[in-house]
């Protein structure tokens, strides 16, 4: 039943929650449609039936039955069902069932004006310390302390997020400067990145980028892969604050991780090669 909204622009959903979120969007739209069509029919019939030329004298009392209260009651009941049956459980799962690092691929995302810094913990699975004093927009945008206990094998990318398919992903979201919003439209993930706070987001992708691209063949979207969008006004470059999301098969993901670890050994702290700043026009 969610396909109907895809005619109205909703992108194909490829995460474990997208089905349920689409479902609730559709249900609410059906409720809206029923109400609107109901009102609309009543409206048009009234206008035609009681136009001045046809009905010279108005009826002082008008409608005397109180079926409208039934309508209002019905709307209330449906809304309660939507809330308790669908909305609350989805939200509970979203905020309460955050997996910890053993159960999930653990990634940090640090938003800053017009770029997404993706911080991976490396082989030890634990993030090294980050410090404001170490922040250097050129060489160390997240202020990673290489000398801290777990910091040696950490690596980060800019605007390039890689995740494995069918695996729980936990993203700890924070921001360096202003409020951003980390949005993965196709995965139905969206969360504000608020300065001073670290907010966990979790999701599981259900198809790889490659599989997703195949669904887009023949549409206007053909050849355009997944992206990280910023969905909160964050300044002048808000419109071009775009990251790229690649969903790999598990083995490809492991290979990618190894490749990154390899760069770390070769080049030390220099990560310039892997940066992708999108349309680089500044």
């Amino acid at each position: 039943m969610t396909e109907i909204l895809q005619y109205f622009g909703l992108p194909v959903g490829i995460s474990s929650v997208s089905g349920r979120i689409d479902e609730i969007i559709v249900i609410v739209h059906y409720l809206m449609l029923v109400l609107f069509v109901g009102w609309g029919i009543f409206f048009i019939v009234s206008l035609i039936k009681f136009r001045e030329s046809k009905n010279k004298k108005a009826n002082y009392k008008g409608v005397e039955s109180h079926y409208s209260s039934v309508l209002e009651g019905a709307v209330a009941v449906i809304e309660i069902v939507i809330l308790f049956g669908f909305a609350f459980p989805i939200w509970a799962e979203r905020v309460n069932d955050v997996p910890d690092s053993r159960d999930a691929e653990y990634i940090r995302v640090i938003a800053q004006q017009y770029a997404w810094n993706i911080h991976y913990p490396g082989a030890d699975g634990i993030f090294g310390d980050t410090k404001v004093e170490l922040v250097d927009e050129q060489d160390n945008p997240i202020g990673l302390d290489r000398n801290s206990e777990f910091g040696k094998d950490d690596f980060y990318t800019i605007n390039q997020m890689h995740i494995p398919v069918d695996t729980k992903i936990r993203v700890d979201l924070s921001s360096k400067d202003v409020i951003h919003n980390f949005k993965l439209p196709e995965l139905r993930v969206s969360q504000d990145a608020i300065p001073g706070m670290t907010i966990p987001v979790h999701f599981t992708a259900t198809s790889t980028s490659k599989e997703f691209l195949e669904t887009a063949v023949g549409t206007k979207r053909e050849g355009k892969s997944l992206e990280i969008a910023c969905a909160q006004l964050c300044g002048l470059g808000h419109y071009r604050m775009k990251g790229y999301l690649t969903i790999h098969e598990q083995e490809d993901y492991s290979a990618w991780l190894e490749e990154q670890a390899g760069y770390l050994e070769e080049e030390g702290d220099d990560w310039g090669d892997d940066d992708d700043w999108g349309d680089d026009d500044w």
Partner: peptide
Amino acid sequence: SIPSVVVLTAFFISLWGGSIRF
């Protein structure tokens, strides 16, 4: 949303039985 529905519904029902001038 319920009182909003009440308001809108009351306005629609007000039309019923009227002598509507456009």
